[in-house]
Amino acid sequence: MSTRAESGPPASERIVLHDADITRALTRIAHEILESNRGPDGLVLLGIPTRGVPLAQRLAALLERFAGVPVATGALDVTMYRDDLAQHPTRAPHPTDIPSSGIDGRVVVLVDDVLFSGRSIRAALDALQDIGRPAAVRLAILVDRGHRELPIRPDFVGKNLPSARSERVNVRLTEVDGVDAVSIQAPDAREGAEADA
């Protein structure tokens, strides 16, 4: 995804979520996770790089603020589990960082920025099988843009964002891009191919 954090989005790009909207969405997701899990016990949040990792860290901070106890957080790299490596062989792997408590018997919440085709999440489920056996796996997504190619549905959604398949959804986060914003970019302004999520 292009960042353009300092110069702002181009004219063909429409901002749909600002920083306050993202904060509200994550706050709601954190409350929904606690309600669904009946508290913080046994939770592990695993962010899918790149932007899923800071989102998981933000959610963990909110959960700790609301529940009063820390929640284990980590990162789950799915690069080598993707089914499109032949088309994109130069993908650089990210480090996987599983909390020392592990995931066996825990409720794992996978966290990502955009849910599109569902292929990244399928890869994440395959990666989890090589790490351990969670009691349950849930999915928290900041933006669900539809166009699913696999039968995958998120449990917690910040924003449902209908968009044309030809459009690009850009998520920018302060930790990565220097600004918090979600935008839709028209196809004539896209730079490069959209990553399936």
Rank of each mutant, 00 (worst) to 15 (best):
3 T>D: 14
4 R>S: 14
9 P>Y: 00
9 P>N: 10
12 S>R: 05
12 S>W: 00
13 E>A: 09
14 R>C: 06
14 R>N: 06
16 V>R: 01
20 A>V: 12
20 A>E: 07
22 I>L: 06
24 R>Y: 03
26 L>M: 15
27 T>H: 13
29 I>E: 04
31 H>N: 15
31 H>D: 14
35 E>T: 14
37 N>P: 13
37 N>V: 07
37 N>D: 08
41 D>G: 15
42 G>W: 00
44 V>Q: 08
46 L>N: 13
47 G>D: 02
47 G>F: 00
49 P>G: 09
51 R>C: 11
53 V>F: 00
54 P>Y: 01
56 A>G: 09
56 A>Y: 00
57 Q>R: 15
58 R>F: 06
58 R>G: 15
58 R>D: 04
61 A>T: 12
62 L>D: 06
62 L>F: 04
63 L>Q: 12
68 G>P: 10
71 V>F: 01
72 A>C: 06
73 T>Y: 05
77 D>T: 07
79 T>G: 11
83 D>R: 06
84 D>V: 02
88 H>S: 13
89 P>M: 02
90 T>I: 02
92 A>P: 11
93 P>Q: 04
95 P>A: 02
96 T>I: 05
105 G>P: 04
105 G>N: 02
107 V>N: 13
109 V>M: 08
110 L>W: 01
111 V>W: 03
111 V>F: 05
111 V>Y: 04
112 D>Q: 04
113 D>T: 09
113 D>L: 09
114 V>M: 10
115 L>Y: 01
117 S>Q: 00
119 R>L: 01
120 S>K: 07
122 R>L: 08
124 A>G: 12
127 A>P: 07
127 A>R: 03
128 L>A: 11
128 L>F: 03
129 Q>A: 14
130 D>H: 07
131 I>K: 12
132 G>L: 00
132 G>V: 02
133 R>M: 07
134 P>E: 01
136 A>T: 04
136 A>S: 13
137 V>I: 11
138 R>Q: 15
138 R>L: 11
139 L>W: 03
140 A>E: 02
140 A>H: 08
141 I>L: 13
143 V>Y: 01
143 V>W: 03
147 H>R: 08
150 L>G: 11
150 L>Y: 04
156 F>P: 15
156 F>S: 12
156 F>G: 15
159 K>V: 11
160 N>C: 12
160 N>E: 06
161 L>Y: 01
162 P>K: 04
166 S>I: 02
166 S>V: 00
166 S>C: 03
169 V>H: 08
171 V>Y: 00
172 R>Q: 13
172 R>K: 12
173 L>Y: 03
176 V>T: 13
177 D>T: 09
181 A>V: 09
181 A>N: 09
182 V>P: 06
182 V>I: 05
183 S>T: 03
184 I>D: 03
185 Q>I: 08
186 A>S: 10
188 D>C: 05
189 A>C: 00
190 R>P: 10
192 G>F: 05
194 E>A: 14
195 A>C: 06
196 D>G: 15
